[in-house]
Design a protein around this nucleic acid. Structure first.
Lengths: 164, 164
DNA sequence: TATTGTTATACTCTATAACTATA
DNA sequence: TATAGTTATAGAGTATAACAATA
Protein backbone atom coordinates (compact mmCIF):
# COMPACT_ATOMS: atom_id res chain seq x y z
CA UNK A 1 0.00 0.00 0.00
CA UNK A 2 0.82 3.67 -0.23
CA UNK A 3 3.46 2.86 -2.78
CA UNK A 4 5.57 5.50 -4.47
CA UNK A 5 3.64 7.73 -6.83
CA UNK A 6 3.78 6.35 -10.33
CA UNK A 7 4.17 8.59 -13.34
CA UNK A 8 1.42 7.80 -15.82
CA UNK A 9 0.90 8.77 -19.41
CA UNK A 10 -1.83 7.58 -21.75
CA UNK A 11 0.33 4.65 -22.78
CA UNK A 12 1.83 3.94 -19.38
CA UNK A 13 -0.99 2.48 -17.34
CA UNK A 14 -3.59 5.19 -17.54
CA UNK A 15 -6.22 4.85 -20.19
CA UNK A 16 -6.73 6.83 -23.37
CA UNK A 17 -8.39 10.18 -22.74
CA UNK A 18 -10.64 10.85 -25.76
CA UNK A 19 -10.87 14.56 -25.01
CA UNK A 20 -8.12 16.16 -22.96
CA UNK A 21 -9.55 19.18 -21.09
CA UNK A 22 -8.54 22.57 -22.39
CA UNK A 23 -7.42 21.26 -25.78
CA UNK A 24 -8.93 22.52 -29.02
CA UNK A 25 -9.35 19.58 -31.41
CA UNK A 26 -10.36 21.80 -34.31
CA UNK A 27 -11.66 19.98 -37.37
CA UNK A 28 -10.96 16.59 -35.79
CA UNK A 29 -14.15 16.93 -33.75
CA UNK A 30 -16.25 17.04 -36.90
CA UNK A 31 -14.60 14.29 -38.96
CA UNK A 32 -16.15 10.84 -39.22
CA UNK A 33 -12.64 9.44 -39.64
CA UNK A 34 -11.36 10.89 -36.38
CA UNK A 35 -14.52 9.80 -34.59
CA UNK A 36 -13.95 6.24 -35.77
CA UNK A 37 -10.27 6.41 -34.85
CA UNK A 38 -10.98 7.77 -31.37
CA UNK A 39 -13.63 5.11 -30.70
CA UNK A 40 -11.28 2.46 -32.05
CA UNK A 41 -8.51 3.52 -29.63
CA UNK A 42 -10.86 3.31 -26.64
CA UNK A 43 -12.35 0.00 -27.77
CA UNK A 44 -8.99 -1.59 -28.55
CA UNK A 45 -7.63 -0.69 -25.15
CA UNK A 46 -10.59 -2.27 -23.34
CA UNK A 47 -10.56 -5.32 -25.63
CA UNK A 48 -6.89 -6.08 -24.91
CA UNK A 49 -7.42 -5.73 -21.16
CA UNK A 50 -10.60 -7.82 -21.15
CA UNK A 51 -9.16 -10.64 -23.29
CA UNK A 52 -5.72 -10.71 -21.65
CA UNK A 53 -6.51 -14.01 -19.87
CA UNK A 54 -6.73 -15.66 -23.31
CA UNK A 55 -4.08 -13.55 -25.04
CA UNK A 56 -6.66 -12.81 -27.74
CA UNK A 57 -6.40 -9.70 -29.93
CA UNK A 58 -9.12 -8.32 -32.21
CA UNK A 59 -7.76 -9.97 -35.39
CA UNK A 60 -7.33 -13.27 -33.53
CA UNK A 61 -10.94 -13.11 -32.36
CA UNK A 62 -12.17 -12.29 -35.86
CA UNK A 63 -10.19 -15.23 -37.22
CA UNK A 64 -11.60 -17.65 -34.64
CA UNK A 65 -15.19 -16.60 -35.34
CA UNK A 66 -14.80 -16.76 -39.11
CA UNK A 67 -13.09 -20.15 -38.98
CA UNK A 68 -15.78 -21.46 -36.64
CA UNK A 69 -18.59 -20.29 -38.90
CA UNK A 70 -16.93 -21.32 -42.16
CA UNK A 71 -15.27 -24.68 -41.57
CA UNK A 72 -12.74 -25.77 -44.18
CA UNK A 73 -11.87 -22.14 -44.95
CA UNK A 74 -8.71 -21.64 -46.99
CA UNK A 75 -5.91 -19.66 -45.37
CA UNK A 76 -5.72 -17.18 -48.25
CA UNK A 77 -9.45 -16.49 -48.01
CA UNK A 78 -9.11 -15.92 -44.28
CA UNK A 79 -6.40 -13.35 -44.98
CA UNK A 80 -8.63 -11.62 -47.52
CA UNK A 81 -11.52 -11.48 -45.04
CA UNK A 82 -9.27 -9.96 -42.39
CA UNK A 83 -7.71 -7.51 -44.85
CA UNK A 84 -4.15 -8.72 -44.36
CA UNK A 85 -1.52 -10.32 -46.62
CA UNK A 86 -1.31 -14.10 -46.91
CA UNK A 87 2.01 -14.07 -45.10
CA UNK A 88 0.31 -12.41 -42.16
CA UNK A 89 -2.41 -15.01 -42.29
CA UNK A 90 0.20 -17.74 -41.95
CA UNK A 91 1.61 -16.15 -38.78
CA UNK A 92 -1.88 -15.60 -37.37
CA UNK A 93 -2.89 -19.22 -37.96
CA UNK A 94 0.49 -20.35 -36.57
CA UNK A 95 -0.26 -18.50 -33.33
CA UNK A 96 -3.82 -19.86 -33.03
CA UNK A 97 -2.53 -23.35 -33.77
CA UNK A 98 0.18 -23.08 -31.10
CA UNK A 99 -2.55 -22.00 -28.68
CA UNK A 100 -4.34 -25.22 -29.56
CA UNK A 101 -7.45 -23.51 -30.93
CA UNK A 102 -7.05 -24.02 -34.68
CA UNK A 103 -5.84 -26.87 -36.84
CA UNK A 104 -4.79 -27.15 -40.45
CA UNK A 105 -6.61 -30.04 -42.10
CA UNK A 106 -5.84 -31.42 -45.53
CA UNK A 107 -8.24 -30.02 -48.10
CA UNK A 108 -9.86 -32.78 -50.11
CA UNK A 109 -10.63 -30.52 -53.07
CA UNK A 110 -7.26 -28.78 -53.49
CA UNK A 111 -4.02 -30.37 -52.41
CA UNK A 112 -2.29 -26.97 -52.28
CA UNK A 113 -4.68 -25.62 -49.69
CA UNK A 114 -5.50 -26.22 -46.07
CA UNK A 115 -9.00 -26.49 -44.69
CA UNK A 116 -8.93 -24.56 -41.44
CA UNK A 117 -10.98 -25.66 -38.47
CA UNK A 118 -11.32 -25.25 -34.73
CA UNK A 119 -10.07 -27.95 -32.41
CA UNK A 120 -12.27 -29.28 -29.64
CA UNK A 121 -10.45 -26.92 -27.26
CA UNK A 122 -10.95 -24.12 -29.75
CA UNK A 123 -14.69 -24.66 -29.84
CA UNK A 124 -14.85 -24.79 -26.06
CA UNK A 125 -12.69 -21.72 -25.46
CA UNK A 126 -14.38 -19.71 -28.18
CA UNK A 127 -17.57 -19.84 -26.14
CA UNK A 128 -15.85 -18.26 -23.15
CA UNK A 129 -13.93 -15.85 -25.35
CA UNK A 130 -17.11 -14.77 -27.13
CA UNK A 131 -18.79 -14.18 -23.79
CA UNK A 132 -15.90 -11.97 -22.70
CA UNK A 133 -15.95 -10.07 -26.00
CA UNK A 134 -19.73 -9.60 -25.76
CA UNK A 135 -19.40 -8.24 -22.24
CA UNK A 136 -16.65 -5.91 -23.45
CA UNK A 137 -18.82 -4.77 -26.36
CA UNK A 138 -21.78 -4.08 -24.07
CA UNK A 139 -19.46 -2.14 -21.77
CA UNK A 140 -18.21 0.04 -24.62
CA UNK A 141 -21.74 0.77 -25.82
CA UNK A 142 -23.31 1.13 -22.39
CA UNK A 143 -24.16 4.78 -23.13
CA UNK A 144 -26.39 3.69 -26.04
CA UNK A 145 -29.78 2.04 -25.93
CA UNK A 146 -30.52 -0.92 -28.19
CA UNK A 147 -31.95 1.21 -30.99
CA UNK A 148 -28.94 3.54 -30.97
CA UNK A 149 -26.55 0.61 -30.96
CA UNK A 150 -28.26 -0.94 -33.97
CA UNK A 151 -28.24 2.44 -35.67
CA UNK A 152 -24.52 2.86 -35.01
CA UNK A 153 -23.71 -0.59 -36.39
CA UNK A 154 -25.78 0.18 -39.50
CA UNK A 155 -24.14 3.56 -40.08
CA UNK A 156 -20.68 2.02 -39.67
CA UNK A 157 -21.51 -0.68 -42.22
CA UNK A 158 -22.47 1.97 -44.74
CA UNK A 159 -19.24 3.86 -44.12
CA UNK A 160 -17.22 0.65 -44.48
CA UNK A 161 -18.98 -0.06 -47.77
CA UNK A 162 -20.85 -3.21 -46.78
CA UNK A 163 -23.36 -4.01 -49.56
CA UNK A 164 -26.98 -3.59 -48.51
CA UNK B 1 -0.99 -2.67 -72.17
CA UNK B 2 -2.59 -6.04 -71.66
CA UNK B 3 0.13 -6.75 -69.16
CA UNK B 4 0.43 -10.03 -67.36
CA UNK B 5 -2.39 -10.70 -64.96
CA UNK B 6 -1.47 -9.60 -61.47
CA UNK B 7 -2.30 -11.66 -58.47
CA UNK B 8 -4.11 -9.49 -55.94
CA UNK B 9 -5.01 -10.03 -52.35
CA UNK B 10 -6.58 -7.56 -49.96
CA UNK B 11 -3.16 -6.28 -48.97
CA UNK B 12 -1.55 -6.49 -52.38
CA UNK B 13 -3.12 -3.70 -54.39
CA UNK B 14 -6.78 -4.53 -54.12
CA UNK B 15 -8.74 -2.80 -51.41
CA UNK B 16 -10.22 -4.16 -48.24
CA UNK B 17 -13.47 -6.03 -48.81
CA UNK B 18 -15.67 -5.34 -45.76
CA UNK B 19 -17.93 -8.30 -46.48
CA UNK B 20 -16.54 -11.16 -48.56
CA UNK B 21 -19.42 -12.87 -50.41
CA UNK B 22 -20.44 -16.26 -49.11
CA UNK B 23 -18.73 -15.82 -45.74
CA UNK B 24 -20.64 -16.06 -42.48
CA UNK B 25 -19.34 -13.38 -40.10
CA UNK B 26 -21.36 -14.69 -37.16
CA UNK B 27 -21.38 -12.47 -34.10
CA UNK B 28 -18.97 -10.01 -35.71
CA UNK B 29 -21.82 -8.53 -37.70
CA UNK B 30 -23.60 -7.47 -34.52
CA UNK B 31 -20.67 -6.10 -32.50
CA UNK B 32 -20.07 -2.37 -32.23
CA UNK B 33 -16.37 -3.14 -31.87
CA UNK B 34 -16.15 -5.05 -35.13
CA UNK B 35 -18.21 -2.37 -36.88
CA UNK B 36 -15.74 0.28 -35.73
CA UNK B 37 -12.78 -1.90 -36.69
CA UNK B 38 -14.18 -2.62 -40.15
CA UNK B 39 -14.93 1.05 -40.81
CA UNK B 40 -11.49 1.95 -39.50
CA UNK B 41 -9.81 -0.45 -41.96
CA UNK B 42 -11.68 1.05 -44.91
CA UNK B 43 -11.09 4.63 -43.78
CA UNK B 44 -7.40 4.09 -43.05
CA UNK B 45 -6.81 2.60 -46.47
CA UNK B 46 -8.43 5.55 -48.24
CA UNK B 47 -6.69 8.08 -45.98
CA UNK B 48 -3.24 6.70 -46.75
CA UNK B 49 -3.92 6.71 -50.48
CA UNK B 50 -5.41 10.22 -50.46
CA UNK B 51 -2.62 11.76 -48.36
CA UNK B 52 0.25 9.92 -50.05
CA UNK B 53 1.40 13.12 -51.84
CA UNK B 54 2.16 14.61 -48.39
CA UNK B 55 3.25 11.37 -46.69
CA UNK B 56 0.74 12.18 -43.96
CA UNK B 57 -0.73 9.43 -41.77
CA UNK B 58 -3.73 9.75 -39.42
CA UNK B 59 -1.64 10.39 -36.28
CA UNK B 60 0.51 12.90 -38.15
CA UNK B 61 -2.60 14.77 -39.26
CA UNK B 62 -4.03 14.74 -35.75
CA UNK B 63 -0.74 16.10 -34.42
CA UNK B 64 -0.62 18.91 -36.99
CA UNK B 65 -4.18 20.00 -36.24
CA UNK B 66 -3.72 19.90 -32.47
CA UNK B 67 -0.42 21.80 -32.64
CA UNK B 68 -1.98 24.39 -34.95
CA UNK B 69 -4.94 24.94 -32.65
CA UNK B 70 -2.94 24.86 -29.41
CA UNK B 71 0.29 26.76 -30.04
CA UNK B 72 3.04 26.26 -27.48
CA UNK B 73 1.79 22.74 -26.69
CA UNK B 74 4.19 20.56 -24.71
CA UNK B 75 5.41 17.37 -26.35
CA UNK B 76 4.23 15.20 -23.48
CA UNK B 77 0.73 16.68 -23.66
CA UNK B 78 0.65 16.03 -27.39
CA UNK B 79 1.52 12.40 -26.71
CA UNK B 80 -1.27 12.18 -24.13
CA UNK B 81 -3.78 13.65 -26.58
CA UNK B 82 -2.79 11.16 -29.24
CA UNK B 83 -2.80 8.26 -26.80
CA UNK B 84 0.82 7.29 -27.36
CA UNK B 85 3.93 7.15 -25.15
CA UNK B 86 6.18 10.21 -24.86
CA UNK B 87 8.93 8.36 -26.72
CA UNK B 88 6.55 7.91 -29.63
CA UNK B 89 5.71 11.58 -29.47
CA UNK B 90 9.38 12.43 -29.87
CA UNK B 91 9.64 10.34 -33.05
CA UNK B 92 6.40 11.80 -34.40
CA UNK B 93 7.57 15.38 -33.81
CA UNK B 94 10.97 14.47 -35.26
CA UNK B 95 9.28 13.36 -38.48
CA UNK B 96 7.06 16.45 -38.75
CA UNK B 97 10.07 18.65 -38.03
CA UNK B 98 12.14 16.95 -40.74
CA UNK B 99 9.23 17.56 -43.11
CA UNK B 100 9.53 21.23 -42.22
CA UNK B 101 6.02 21.51 -40.79
CA UNK B 102 6.68 21.70 -37.05
CA UNK B 103 9.29 23.39 -34.90
CA UNK B 104 10.38 23.04 -31.30
CA UNK B 105 10.49 26.44 -29.65
CA UNK B 106 11.93 27.15 -26.23
CA UNK B 107 9.18 27.26 -23.63
CA UNK B 108 9.35 30.44 -21.60
CA UNK B 109 7.50 28.96 -18.62
CA UNK B 110 9.37 25.65 -18.25
CA UNK B 111 12.95 25.21 -19.36
CA UNK B 112 12.55 21.42 -19.51
CA UNK B 113 9.78 21.63 -22.10
CA UNK B 114 9.36 22.61 -25.70
CA UNK B 115 6.58 24.77 -27.02
CA UNK B 116 5.52 23.15 -30.27
CA UNK B 117 4.36 25.22 -33.20
CA UNK B 118 3.79 25.10 -36.95
CA UNK B 119 6.30 26.67 -39.29
CA UNK B 120 5.13 29.01 -42.03
CA UNK B 121 5.33 26.05 -44.44
CA UNK B 122 3.41 23.97 -41.94
CA UNK B 123 0.58 26.49 -41.79
CA UNK B 124 0.46 26.70 -45.58
CA UNK B 125 0.57 22.95 -46.18
CA UNK B 126 -1.92 22.18 -43.42
CA UNK B 127 -4.54 24.07 -45.42
CA UNK B 128 -4.00 21.82 -48.43
CA UNK B 129 -3.70 18.74 -46.25
CA UNK B 130 -6.92 19.58 -44.41
CA UNK B 131 -8.70 20.03 -47.73
CA UNK B 132 -7.51 16.59 -48.84
CA UNK B 133 -8.57 15.03 -45.54
CA UNK B 134 -11.97 16.71 -45.72
CA UNK B 135 -12.50 15.40 -49.24
CA UNK B 136 -11.48 11.96 -48.07
CA UNK B 137 -13.88 12.18 -45.12
CA UNK B 138 -16.75 13.25 -47.35
CA UNK B 139 -15.93 10.35 -49.68
CA UNK B 140 -16.04 7.85 -46.83
CA UNK B 141 -19.37 9.17 -45.57
CA UNK B 142 -20.92 9.76 -48.98
CA UNK B 143 -23.64 7.19 -48.22
CA UNK B 144 -24.85 9.30 -45.29
CA UNK B 145 -26.78 12.54 -45.35
CA UNK B 146 -25.73 15.40 -43.10
CA UNK B 147 -28.06 14.41 -40.27
CA UNK B 148 -26.84 10.81 -40.33
CA UNK B 149 -23.23 11.94 -40.39
CA UNK B 150 -23.76 14.17 -37.35
CA UNK B 151 -25.56 11.32 -35.64
CA UNK B 152 -22.70 8.92 -36.34
CA UNK B 153 -20.12 11.36 -35.00
CA UNK B 154 -22.21 11.83 -31.86
CA UNK B 155 -22.71 8.11 -31.28
CA UNK B 156 -18.98 7.49 -31.74
CA UNK B 157 -18.14 10.18 -29.20
CA UNK B 158 -20.38 8.51 -26.65
CA UNK B 159 -18.72 5.14 -27.30
CA UNK B 160 -15.26 6.71 -26.98
CA UNK B 161 -16.30 8.26 -23.68
CA UNK B 162 -16.11 11.92 -24.66
CA UNK B 163 -17.72 13.96 -21.84
CA UNK B 164 -20.98 15.62 -22.85
C1' DT C 1 10.62 13.59 -5.65
C1' DA C 2 8.33 14.30 -9.93
C1' DT C 3 8.25 15.76 -14.71
C1' DT C 4 10.22 16.77 -19.59
C1' DG C 5 12.41 15.28 -23.29
C1' DT C 6 15.50 11.95 -25.04
C1' DT C 7 17.74 7.62 -26.29
C1' DA C 8 18.28 2.61 -26.53
C1' DT C 9 16.06 -1.42 -27.19
C1' DA C 10 12.60 -4.70 -28.29
C1' DC C 11 8.22 -6.38 -29.73
C1' DT C 12 4.12 -6.69 -32.72
C1' DC C 13 2.03 -6.24 -36.92
C1' DT C 14 2.26 -5.79 -41.48
C1' DA C 15 4.22 -5.70 -46.17
C1' DT C 16 7.05 -7.32 -50.29
C1' DA C 17 9.35 -10.70 -52.69
C1' DA C 18 10.93 -15.13 -53.74
C1' DC C 19 10.23 -19.96 -53.45
C1' DT C 20 7.63 -24.96 -53.91
C1' DA C 21 3.91 -27.57 -54.93
C1' DT C 22 0.06 -27.88 -57.02
C1' DA C 23 -3.80 -26.40 -60.30
C1' DT D 1 0.22 -19.33 -66.23
C1' DA D 2 -2.02 -18.74 -61.94
C1' DT D 3 -2.83 -19.91 -57.15
C1' DA D 4 -1.91 -21.81 -52.05
C1' DG D 5 1.05 -21.78 -48.60
C1' DT D 6 5.54 -20.72 -46.79
C1' DT D 7 9.76 -18.29 -45.61
C1' DA D 8 12.99 -14.42 -45.26
C1' DT D 9 13.39 -9.84 -44.63
C1' DA D 10 12.28 -5.17 -43.70
C1' DG D 11 9.65 -1.22 -42.18
C1' DA D 12 6.17 1.17 -39.22
C1' DG D 13 4.45 1.93 -34.97
C1' DT D 14 4.45 1.15 -30.46
C1' DA D 15 6.16 0.06 -25.74
C1' DT D 16 9.39 -0.09 -21.58
C1' DA D 17 13.27 1.47 -19.14
C1' DA D 18 16.97 4.36 -18.08
C1' DC D 19 19.09 8.90 -18.24
C1' DA D 20 20.20 14.22 -17.67
C1' DA D 21 18.14 18.55 -16.96
C1' DT D 22 14.87 21.01 -14.61
C1' DA D 23 10.88 21.73 -11.55
Amino acid sequence: MAATTRRRTAAEGEHFDPQVPGIDYGVLDRLVGYGVRRAQLAIHEDFIAALAPWNITPPRFSALVVIARNPGLKLSLLAQILGIARSGGVLLVDALQEMGYVERRASEADRRAWGLGLTEAGRRELKAITAAVSAHDRRMSRMLDEAEKAQLVGLLKRVAGVPI
